[in-house]
Design a protein around this nucleic acid. Structure first.
Lengths: 363, 363
DNA sequence: TCCTACACTGTGTGCGAACACAGATTGAAT
DNA sequence: ATTCAATCTGTGTTCGCACACAGTGTAGGA
């Protein structure tokens, strides 16, 4: 059980004071090259690893972190990343991290911008911002602000093509489409048709939805079957109107009698199934996303065959922990952090749900 | 942004010294009841939460943790929990946690006992022991030792019926059998037979294997099909002998021509498939456990249809983090901590494998 | 009355690192 | 040789808490 090496030990061994060692460690200059070399040599010899505990105590600093996410009223999904965020916060607040959370309407770019301003112009400006780049133009602007102000940025749920982001935490959209293809293909006949159903506003701007569709199509292409031609897409912006959605679906069924597979590209599967409440869906197989209570009911019934879990809680958790790793532990942070695409059936659902519930207990 | 409350603040507000507050907090006695009440009142008013950072720095104590796991030569599986353990250790060693790791042969109860003795009689006896209760009798003895010596115990991978264990981290064996049933039942005809294959020594003592079989059988029972009667089991202790295993399997196939589903109850699926290398398995569907490289090859080929991931790395990680939660953060620890039963197919495997690699960045 | 025992409370030091500031050394310019 | 600035190095204080120890007060016995 070897004793831990302290700055003092290094100082003694190198024949200098602790202040000098400190200057070397933090590259604060004012140390002659010879001395610096000697100190570094000793550090390597003794395999020095700083005591983070003592370090954070002495720093006595605040690390304000801005959070910018959709509110839960827009979409129950977004309560989950927030939950993970809170959990992570419990772990790292001792290190001085302070959250400044702002929520915006999921379909309201102006609110996004307004909240972003609030964040940036806070009395204690954040050292990092954690946000969901839902709106492309506004997000590019925010990234630019981060760049000029020297603020680190962590992207969650949706990625952006910006090399200056500290990291992205979320799913691999393309591959989730591939996986959906795999799950839908089980027991599929050669003439069956697959429907890709986008229930969202402004789907034209939603790159991740396109990626999912591409993944699904590529999966069937690789199967080399005639199924290739039979993937159709339907974008529905009026998904909140139950009657309209039902009519639209029924028309789709009529026009495509071989339709037997539905892939809902986000967490809103339950909207379709609510709308089709009375319609017999026995011969349909549906795959959707996320373990929302509304979806779970249909999964238990068998109306949804599989749900793909995007680990929303872990997304929030990881996102903040990455900031901690960067600023406190000074560990390198991986740019792309894909969370597993969990295949959820009634038989294994409880464990994923339990994991989410356990987090509530902590808070 | 409210300032954090310190002991000093409480002392001032309560009109006492910090020493007294400290005595109240740690219930070290020698404080008059009136003063103690007043201090506690103030603590509640100001909502005091101790600064763990400063606390652990001042404690300057060691927390020796004993670790007792199977070695990797016995079974490559066990390298994974150990990996998670090491990663967790990186996170908590600053708090004074020191590991004392001992490995034993997976089929060697005497070694288990010997190593347990080494742990218990170490110069700095552990405050907690983390172990896999592979051997029932020996584990009961170890638990008794922990009880009398006041050592906390964390069980990993296999549970034991002992209320004094701090917690169990692992899978729900029964439910993993149910899940296997579900996965095997996909596309199954009414006459198909299912083989439960135990590749282990002393399977009679392995409760978790029995639980898995029970889960599988219950699943088919609940299906209410004729499939109920067609689940057969085969225990194989000589699984390391490739030729013997192949012969045994071929005989099973001959005796049970309707056999089309194989459930390997642990991570050793690859043993069967290695043995059956030349035999055509096109009409078979196999489900096994764990993403060992050997299994992954067969999964990619399609020879294994699904692997159930028991999250072995996370098991090790969580086990140690629980000890940290208990001793450092003083959080309540949940007795049963079931990890998700991930359904792994080639299309989502990479993310689970990646997570194992990345884990140190995670928590 | 004094002393002792005991209950109670305050003070001081250390944990390891960060940083401000004072002090020392050097070299160049006067 | 002296001054001055620039460069380099050491010391001391701080962070919040834990704990040893010193100090005060009170009651009871001799």
């Amino acid at each position: 059980m070897e004793k831990r090496i302290r700055i003092k030990d290094i100082a003694e061994r190198a024949g200098v004071s602790t202040g000098t060692v400190d200057r070397v460690i933090h590259q604060r200059g004012n140390v002659s090259p010879e001395v610096a070399d000697r100190v570094m040599q000793v550090m390597r010899e003794l395999n020095y690893e700083p005591n983070i505990i003592a370090s954070t105590l002495a720093y006595n600093r605040k690390l304000p972190v801005g959070v910018l996410l959709p509110d839960y009223d827009s979409d129950p999904y977004w309560a989950l990343p927030n939950l993970g965020l809170k959990r992570a916060f419990q772990n790292v607040r001792h290190y001085g991290i302070v959250l400044d959370t702002h929520l915006f309407g999921l379909f309201d770019p102006a609110a996004f911008l307004a909240k972003a301003h609030e964040l940036l112009d806070a009395p204690e400006p954040p050292v990092a911002i954690l946000f969901a780049p839902i709106f492309l133009r506004e997000s590019i602007w925010l990234m630019e602000q981060c760049r000029t102000r020297g603020i680190a940025s962590v992207l969650i749920n949706t990625d952006m093509d910006d090399p200056d982001a500290l990291c992205y935490v979320g799913q691999d959209s393309y591959q989730s489409g591939v996986l959906a293809g795999k799950l839908l293909s089980i027991g599929m006949g050669p003439d069956d048709q697959v429907l890709v159903l986008n229930l969202d506003k402004e789907t034209t701007n939603a790159k991740h939805l396109w990626d999912k569709e591409r993944g699904l199509r590529d999966y069937f292409l690789r199967l080399k079957g005639p199924a290739v031609a039979s993937v159709i897409r339907y974008d529905c912006e009026f998904f909140e109107d139950q009657d309209a959605l039902r009519d639209a679906m029924l028309q789709l069924f009529r026009e495509n009698p071989q339709l037997s597979r539905i892939f809902v590209t986000n967490s809103r599967s339950y909207f379709v199934l609510d709308a089709l409440n009375r319609v017999s869906l026995r011969h349909f197989r549906t795959v959707g996303f996320d373990l929302l209570p509304q979806n779970m009911t249909y999964l238990e019934q068998g109306t949804i065959s599989f749900l793909i879990n995007q680990n929303p809680v872990e997304q929030g958790y990881l996102a903040l922990m990455n900031i901690a790793n960067h600023f406190i532990y000074k560990k390198p942070v991986k740019r792309m952090q894909y969370l597993p695409l969990d295949i959820v059936v009634p038989e294994n659902a409880r464990y994923y749900l339990q994991r989410e519930k356990d987090l509530e207990l902590v808070y």
